[in-house]
Design a protein around this nucleic acid. Sequence first.
DNA 1: CTGTTAGCGCCTTCAC
DNA 2: GTGAAGGCGCTAACAG
Lengths: 315, 315
Amino acid sequence: MQNRLTIKDIARLSGVGKSTVSRVLNNESGVSQRTRERVEAVMNQHDFSPSRSARAMRGQSDKVVAIILSRLDSLSENLAVQTMLPAFYEQGYDPIMMESQFSAEKVTEHLGMLRRRNIDGVVLFGFTGISDAILAPWRETLVMLARDAKGIASVCYDDEGAITLLMQSLFDKGHRHISYLGVPHSDVTTGKRRHDAYLTFCKQYKLHPVAALPGLAMKQGYDAVASVTHSETTALVCATDTLALGASKYLQEQRNDTLQLASVGNTPLMKFLHPEIVTVDPGYGEAGRQAAHQLIEQINGRAQPQQLVIPAALT
Amino acid sequence: MQNRLTIKDIARLSGVGKSTVSRVLNNESGVSQRTRERVEAVMNQHDFSPSRSARAMRGQSDKVVAIILSRLDSLSENLAVQTMLPAFYEQGYDPIMMESQFSAEKVTEHLGMLRRRNIDGVVLFGFTGISDAILAPWRETLVMLARDAKGIASVCYDDEGAITLLMQSLFDKGHRHISYLGVPHSDVTTGKRRHDAYLTFCKQYKLHPVAALPGLAMKQGYDAVASVTHSETTALVCATDTLALGASKYLQEQRNDTLQLASVGNTPLMKFLHPEIVTVDPGYGEAGRQAAHQLIEQINGRAQPQQLVIPAALT
DNA sequence: CTGTTAGCGCCTTCAC
DNA sequence: GTGAAGGCGCTAACAG
């Protein structure tokens, strides 16, 4: 590397001591206005920036956080990460990324590596199978997304609200035979909560529930449509955009363009491919922003772990 | 944070000096077998790992690289990053990620920040508008993907080969009226090179070229299909999967299922939505692997910048 | 208000 | 072979 200059150089160039430079650097009080300005001038002039490693060594924190997403190509996680990155950079944190591929072992492995690296904090996109035990040591510095766990901070989507909004909207449009395509209950949030909300709505409005819970993949949506659509079915609610994408492919192949699809997601891909769908926005972007904010506050001891829920909104 | 132990502690615990521990840590010669084993035992026993910041300060690098992708939700870039991440972690590098959103200013800004942070290296997903001038200072430690620039390392796709394979395959299947949907020539690789390959093939086989170059977005593909399909057209080659997705939506709406689509991409989404499409795999995964490898080699001074091209393959 | 003095954890001479 | 001493760039006491 080349000769980067240090606070010592800045001190010499502006005729003050190292500590004064340090004080200016950290916006500490106790420096005369004149001195401060002079030092700042020299810094700008030489495009000075302090060594991260040196600060880290003194302070304990190197201002690095990790984002563990389940899959790089998850539409929803992408939206959340897109707002998260700027939020972290704004506060001087460098986010490193890892992929769990929905494997709890990978998460454990990654967290272990992060522990050794002495990272400041972690945003983890949760999924079924992550045990509380492996999260426990991170109580102070981990925020989980899309899933909650007791004792640790989380940002969740309003699963119940999202489905209810969808159902209400369809009901208001006159639909009385609404089927549901979802995810098994082993997945608590996307699976159980959304399905339960569907059942509750049906009971409340005296509709006959027809549902299948094949899983998260497009292909599973595609394969399951037939099992939940009868001759009288007029609408189909899907737990996720991905599932809806699979379903709509099936319907297209059947030349069925009367069934009204609905899903929670509001991803750009969906909006382009099927603008006619009824969609609810779970607030992925907002969730990312909140998660980053919450993590930073916790790292700096300004907040305790807390469970947030992002409100869903019809689009 | 808690009291992590330091080489000093390890030294005390194993009854040797700090420098001996350091030697063991760095696999240096000049330590007796017995001592080495004893020290290593203590290290393992306490799950010791040296402070990154301290090593970084002592002149070594901090083993952090950056990946600047154009968009987090780019299907092709996702595939490349998915292979890149493990490659970096394997070598002990932490990859931080940034999004350029196809803005040259953002790239400049990000590179500036990375320069100040004294990062080890950068993988940049290239696009039109990045000037050689802003890349020049990074000659030694930047690898560009999907685009080349003189003097700096790059990993490109075989644009010409990909299109030629597609055309040949369609030709062999009997198609004689093949249209083309692409990207403006201002984009050298995806735009000009692929279009040129199309034209060359047409000339060589005496086909009549019919092309439009609307851009990269799905909607643009959707809108442009009509302008390149005549009554005799039997096949349509698209420069990217995204474009093809737009085109296929249009065709579906027109209830046209006779036109054979073809595209370069081979992304999972495409494979699911339209398995009937003729597709060529540009080797995104391989490109990611190569880029990571090349960058690491350059960082360690074991390789000079070089331009690589990933061969395309019919799927 | 400001400079001097100690380290933070590690690597690197340089003696022993 | 091995240990002691010095210093990387910075911050945090402690003196002036």
